[in-house]
Design a protein around this nucleic acid. Structure first.
Lengths: 234, 234
DNA sequence: TTGGTTCTTTGATCTGGATCAAATTTTTGA
DNA sequence: TCAAAAATTTGATCCAGATCAAAGAACCAA
């Protein structure tokens, strides 16, 4: 079914920690799976029964209030790990934003395998620590940044992530990229309304900081200006 | 110097994963250390050279913008782990809110020890996953909740954490507790101003949902009402 | 005990971003 | 190819929470 040798994220995903033999075993417990854009992989509060690696596509992790307010709390790109090991319930909803291919494992199978392969578990730890740092950075944006700063930070961030998602050797941020989602999702990432997102983008484009050739296409024309607006701390 | 046998957080901290022999070794590389209230343990951007367990006291983790805007991105209570292993720089500032006692390790020493003791590393992973879930929950609050909902959520959350910090057997949330910090810090946790925090608290007290006997003391009088106001999802 | 310093509350006003409403533009699918 | 639906932009107005200002309270240190 799944064949790790030809997996495009093999070296970037956690499986990169494994040698050929180990990979064979992992292969036997993993399943390639396809999600249509818009399809939800797991719901907040669900029993935690599966975990997975993203092979292709983009997913959003969300938390929401019962009156419909939603916050995107994370994005998962190819090679990222999704799901919640070592816990009986998942705390956020995972939904495919584009058509998505994942390599999924039963949580039990994964945990057992990880237990026998400390290298793998170590990779998971390193990734989790990175994600925690990122989440905490985002808290500064959500709690303290203005709408203009939020948009600028978002665009810089996406330009860097698009680079990662692309080729594995060079990690140059791209000044031209396509977003895998629309305005409402941007609003849900930044804790804003769709109207404010639209107005801020129009503004950036009017001031020639960015160009917006298509609904989901972004060209950063003046990166320095954008970085200055973003008020980044690092 | 440090003696793990008499450490009050021995069973709740990550060292709980170790047996007597392992603890002896850990003991040799760890140092008890004291921080005065207000003292900063590590600064955002610093080289990551030490990690530690909190023994007593409370610390805040913060990110800030250079114009002074600050966001508290985490709190560390007794038995919590602070610092950033497997990364050359720390991404947030760690500051003692009260007089604090910690058990610190050189990052190198800790990483080497963790490498030889998968149990310990596993504990760190479980903790990190929990913290990530918490951070993401907080993102919903920061991005989408109203001031009133933020205060209610905060009070419920603190009442639960005060329980944890107390005795190790019973985890009953406390309806009476003292905050280890003032109004400005609450504002920095919730992404609000100090004035809004003050007004919302006055309001809750006027509506007899809580009682505020001292500047930092809270008594939850109507927990159901508070939970309803908080709009919790779980 | 007092006078200063810091923290908190309260009041008045302002404003950034939300809300409400209505075009445009883009996408879809028959 | 052409409506109908969906997504985005633009405009007008509103309001939750910020800002500005000042008056209490609590907490010192001498």
């Amino acid at each position: 079914m799944s064949v790790c040798e030809e997996c495009v994220v093999r070296n970037r995903a956690i499986c990169g920690a494994l040698d050929e033999d180990e990979l064979q075993i992992m292969n036997r417990i993993g399943h390639k799976q396809v999600l249509k854009a818009g399809q939800t992989f797991m719901w907040e509060g669900d029993d935690s029964t599966v975990v997975a690696n993203v092979i292709d596509g983009v997913l959003k992790l969300t938390n929401s209030l019962d009156d419909g307010r939603e916050q995107i709390v994370g994005l998962a790109f190819p090679a990222d790990f999704i799901g919640r090991p070592y816990q009986d319930h998942v705390k956020h909803t995972v939904t495919a934003l584009t058509d998505t291919k994942i390599c999924s494992f039963s949580r039990n199978g994964f945990e057992q395998f990880a237990h026998e392969h400390p290298n793998l578990e170590h990779k998971v730890l390193e990734r989790t620590l990175d994600e925690l740092d990122q989440a905490r950075d985002w808290m500064l944006l959500l709690g303290r940044k203005t709408a203009a700063e939020k948009l600028a930070t978002f665009l810089i961030n996406m330009s860097e992530r698009s680079a990662d998602a692309g080729c594995s050797t060079s990690f140059m941020p791209q000044n031209r990229f396509s977003l895998p989602f629309g305005r409402q999702q941007i609003a849900d990432i930044l804790g804003l309304t769709i109207e404010t997102v639209s107005r801020q983008l129009t503004d950036l484009s009017r001031r020639a900081v960015v160009d917006l050739p298509g609904k989901r296409d972004v060209v950063i024309k003046d990166r320095d200006a954008l970085v200055a607006l973003a008020n980044l701390q690092y």
